[in-house]
Design a protein around this nucleic acid. Sequence first.
DNA 1: CTCCAGGTTCTGC
DNA 2: GCAGAACATGGA
Length: 261
Amino acid sequence: MNIPAKKFNLKHTLESGQFFRYYEKDGWYYCQERDKVFKIKQDKNKLSFEGTTSKHVKILFGLEHEYPNIIKKLKKDNELSEAVKQYEGLRLMRRDPWETLISFQCSVMSNIPKIRKNMNLLAQKFGNPKNNDYTFPNPGQINSLEKIKQCSTGFRAEWIQKVNEMVDDNYFEKLKKMNYNNAVSELIKLPGVGRKVADCICLFGLGKMQAFPVDVWIERIMLQKYGTDRKEIINFAQQKWGNLAGYAQQFLYHWGRNANT
DNA sequence: CTCCAGGTTCTGC
DNA sequence: GCAGAACATGGA
């Protein structure tokens, strides 16, 4: 199936640390998330995919965002313009919140290759095979601490086991309807979810576009570019960019990890 | 063999 | 409230 996709860059979007279960093969990106297992590739302004619907693709990859306006506004900031130009087409994804939660619990004191390994193993051990890959288990199905530990999750295993019993899909539907601050307050009640992980879930899984996850990379970049101290970063970013704070963060993060340093 | 990694939690002021 | 340390695992 094909759909047009202007002002979109699949590679930048997929490889900017907001999505983990994918791999490249024969010119395609093979992607797995929750019950979806599909492949997708981009040829200029055309997106081709197999294994899912155009509706899912549009939502997942943020194709319905008003991208030209977003870019235009962000480029007005001199500190941001370089990152935006270099990675134009990078979009915020709208992922399955449950898999996003587990992904970012795994991200604690870790790195992207290892998060990917954790998530792939969890899918293998608890999910179902589909098209040579695996779906991700539903809430309630990650029910063996021993098996969770076999996925190289280390000290995060207990967190994963606990949230598996604490939330369901309806929990996330409620969070989507809440405002950003209330959603954060709820999320940080979960084990292994502090402010940073909560902001990642808000941004990538709940569509809270003002969320501004602050990790060591963003902390370093924000100090360097704006001179902001760690504790004031979130307020600074949300005052400066409002609902585009999340986009600003994603550009800075991807830029900071690649072009910069 | 050390060091460190998309932080969180527990502890002790 | 706020610093300091512990927390598994694996790659550099």
